[in-house]
Each structure stands twice: as structure tokens, then as C-alpha cells.
Nucleic acid binder design. Structure first.
Ligand SMILES: [Mn+2]
Ligand SMILES: [Mn+2]
Ligand SMILES: [Mn+2]
Ligand SMILES: [Mn+2]
Lengths: 222, 222
DNA sequence: TGTTATTTTTAGACTAATCTAAATTAAATA
DNA sequence: TATTTAATTTAGATTAGTCTAAAAATAACA
């Protein structure tokens, strides 16, 4: 029961696509996120199906089996632990670590993963606020909402993002909108729905509707 | 100018073989250390030659070009830095880290390598006493000799080993023969050439001729 | 030096992962 | 419902890396 680098990437892609949309995942969606062609995806789906990692019927889309989900979560665990390591120990910026983690997530050794986890102090969230699955593959999924749905007066702690492109990460960096920061919505300007945020130290930050959609907050600290 | 996982392993193997024997490396030697067949090696030699990473003429063996050596040293640098990380930061045993480093050495990013180096405090030697090439690929090659060639009364510091199998590493572990330990040769028993070592704290350790061959010492600390 | 043994290379085939182009199935819509 | 459009699958080819078996070159040695 060995999974190749490539198979792992497919499982991870299917996991993320089905988490976002919580339904059957289509061939073309997978092709898009993996930067490959639909024909290649079909070939791989047959292979993964043969290994009982996905449920697949021609033309009907796919979903992960229990085994497939377990493997996907192991990859995601490694990805996020390595991202945490790179930011916290090697002083990389949060916009610089994803591509490296894409490589490191394929290192095969649960022993290494678990020791890294311990070395890092069992972090719950990666640098982008995404939850890190524990040894058993369990994810602590905090209740989060986009600041685009908030009303004036609402408050919370920035806890996650829905967009991981480095241009967006750099935007947040520039705006000083960091994970863990406490913010309150002061007003929403009607004209273009700009969200005006107020931070704990009185700073005012204007966020466009487009950006607000991708910023997630949590009500209270756990 | 991109080198694949496989190409990197060939370059590394050729480097190590030519360091040991300091001459042309043969097809069969490479096949042996890489656990592959001579025919596969020939194919790869042609490919590496086409990329100017080795000098190769049919039936005459190979040697690395300057470029090939540079790449090999980068892989070795990464291998040894990761081994150091695994032992010093994640508390792995020195007999457990080689296979993991075989995977980690192929992670592509000089930025990561250099930051890891810094994080570790720019170590000069890996857990097995092998020198870690610096950023420019320079190796500090200390003068070492096998304790099998010593006479009674000679002394030095255990600084390296010539055999990296985990069974040998575990043997040294059991004998409490660690890198950095100061030892003196008390006597060499004529019958079977057993080397009797005396450590700084008065401990006596008997080492067989077979094992003595693989243990390297240095005269003085630098 | 001629013959045998060893090493190395070639020839041809295989697998994993990919692609393009064509065929098929399903979905959308007139 | 019939027709058009979009999504998906198949067919056939390609590339990297590997293999076995056979041929060719070199080395060993009688
Ligand atoms: Mn990431
Ligand atoms: Mn992340
Ligand atoms: Mn090693
Ligand atoms: Mn080592």
C-alpha cells in the first residue's frame, strides 16, 4: 500500500475540493487545480479507484474513501507542520512557505512527522490559520466567518483566510492584518462596501469588499 | 538546468565512489551502490554526459565535471545538515537518520538549506563525523587515521567512521564509542589484534580488528 | 598471442505519468 | 423532445527510468 508523490497530490486535491464544495468532485476541477489535463486525471482516477482510495464511476465524479481521506489528512498534517516550522524556526515569511511545504509534505515517515510536531510544541494552526490534523487525523475545525458578512459593531479575532495566493498574503502583510489580531468593524461604507476595521491599539484599516471576503474571524479565543 | 531526483542520486554516488578511490568510476560500481542494473547505469551516464555533468567515454568509466561536482556537493551538504537537524533537534539516534536524509536531501531550495544551516549554528560535522560542505561547496577535510594503524600509547579523538551501516552504528553505540570522545590505545593484543582503548574517565573498551579499521581519529582538537 | 572471462553497451520491452485528438456521454437549451 | 454544448473518457503516442537478454569491447591469463 504505497502511494506515489503524484497519487498523494491527487488525493490532497480531491480532499480540498470536496471540503470546499462538500460534494462529488469533477474531473475538470481536479485538472485545473493540479495544472494538468482532464485525460490525465481520468487515468489517475482509475488507478486510485483500483487502490480503493476513491469511489469513482465514469462520468459521475469522485469522492475519497475512508482510506483515501486518511492519507490526504496525513499529507495535509505534514504540509502544515512544515509550514509552521519554516515560519517559526527558520524565519520564513508566511507568503514564502507554501511551495517548500509542497515538497516537504511528501517525506515519508510518521516518526519524523510526530517528532517534528513535538519539537514545535504541538501547534494547532499553521501560519495561515489552517488547522493542523493531529496524529489520528482529527481536525479541530473552529467556527469562522468572513468579515464580509459582518455588521458595524461586530468584533472578533482574525483566524484564517480563504485565499492562499502569495499576492493576497503580501497584501495582508502590508495592511498589518495578522492571524491572531483582534479587530472590530467600525463601519461599512455603503458606496463600495469598504469595511473599516479598528484594531486594539486604535489603528484604522480599510479593507475592500474583495479582500474582506477572504478574511475569516472567530468570535472568541479558545 | 534542472536535475531530477534520480540524476542527483547518480551524481552523489559517483562523487562518493571517486572520493573513496580517487579515480575513474566504473559502471558496475555505480550499479552496485544504487541497487540497479549496469544497463540502467549506462543509459543514465549518457544522459548526464549530455548535460555536461560527467565526462564519459564508452567502456572507460566516468568522472564528475566541475558542474557535476558542485551539484553533488550541494546534495551532500543538504544530506548532512538534515542529519544534524534530526539528531540535534528531533532527538533521533545517529543510526536512524540516514534514510530520512536520503529523502530530505532532494528538497530544492538553497534558501531553505542556508537558513537551516544558520538555525543549526553552522555545524562543521554531521552526526557521523563527516564534514558538512559550506554554502560555496568547500569541505573542511580534517586529517584522520584508522585506529587499526595505531600503536600502543597513541591517542586522539574519535572523529569519523568509514562504515555507515546501522549495524555498525549500533555497535559503536553499545560500546559507548561516540564522535568527540578522547581515547588512547593501551595495548594491541597480538593473538587477534584486538585494540584495547582507554577513555578519559578510565573506562576500558576492547575493539576487534574488524571494527578498528572503520573507526577514525584525529590528533588534536581544532 | 590467442582464448576465455568479465565488463560494458545495445536492443527491445515495460511501467508511471503525461499529452493531443477523437469519440462518447451527460447537461443545457431551443 | 431534439439539438447543441460542455464534460469526460478512450485511443494512441511520448518521456523518464528501469529491466532482461544478447552483442561487443576490454581485461585476464594460459
Ligand atoms: Mn500551504
Ligand atoms: Mn498553510
Ligand atoms: Mn547519511
Ligand atoms: Mn552522515
Amino acid at each position: 500500500m504505497d502511494t506515489s508523490f503524484t497519487e498523494e497530490n491527487y488525493l490532497k486535491a480531491i480532499y480540498h475540493l470536496s471540503a470546499d464544495e462538500s460534494k462529488q468532485v469533477n474531473t475538470n476541477q481536479i485538472a485545473t487545480v493540479l495544472n494538468t489535463k482532464a485525460a490525465s486525471v481520468t487515468d489517475m482516477l482509475k488507478k486510485l479507484s483500483g487502490k480503493n482510495l476513491i469511489n469513482y464511476e465514469r462520468y459521475q465524479g469522485v469522492e475519497l474513501t475512508g482510506l483515501g481521506k486518511t492519507i490526504a489528512l496525513k499529507i495535509i498534517r505534514k504540509h502544515r507542520l512544515w509550514e509552521y516550522f519554516l515560519v517559526e524556526k527558520l524565519a520564513f515569511g508566511w507568503d514564502e512557505v507554501h511551495d517548500l511545504a509542497e515538497q516537504l509534505e511528501h517525506i515519508q515517515s510518521t516518526e519524523l512527522t510526530d517528532r517534528l510536531d513535538e519539537f514545535l510544541g504541538f501547534p494547532k494552526y499553521d501560519p495561515h490559520g489552517d488547522p493542523i490534523p493531529d496524529q489520528s487525523g482529527t481536525i479541530k475545525c473552529a467556527e469562522m466567518k468572513s468579515i464580509a458578512v459582518l455588521k458595524a459593531g461586530n468584533a472578533g479575532i482574525i483566524s484564517g483566510i480563504k485565499e492562499h495566493s502569495s499576492s493576497f498574503l503580501q497584501y495582508l502583510e502590508k495592511m498589518d492584518l495578522k492571524i491572531g489580531k483582534k479587530i472590530a468593524v467600525e463601519e461599512i461604507i455603503p458606496f463600495d462596501e469598504t469595511v473599516v476595521l479598528r484594531t486594539e491599539n486604535g489603528e484604522k484599516i480599510n479593507v475592500s469588499k474583495a479582500a474582506a471576503k477572504y478574511i475569516l474571524i472567530q468570535d472568541e479565543q479558545l
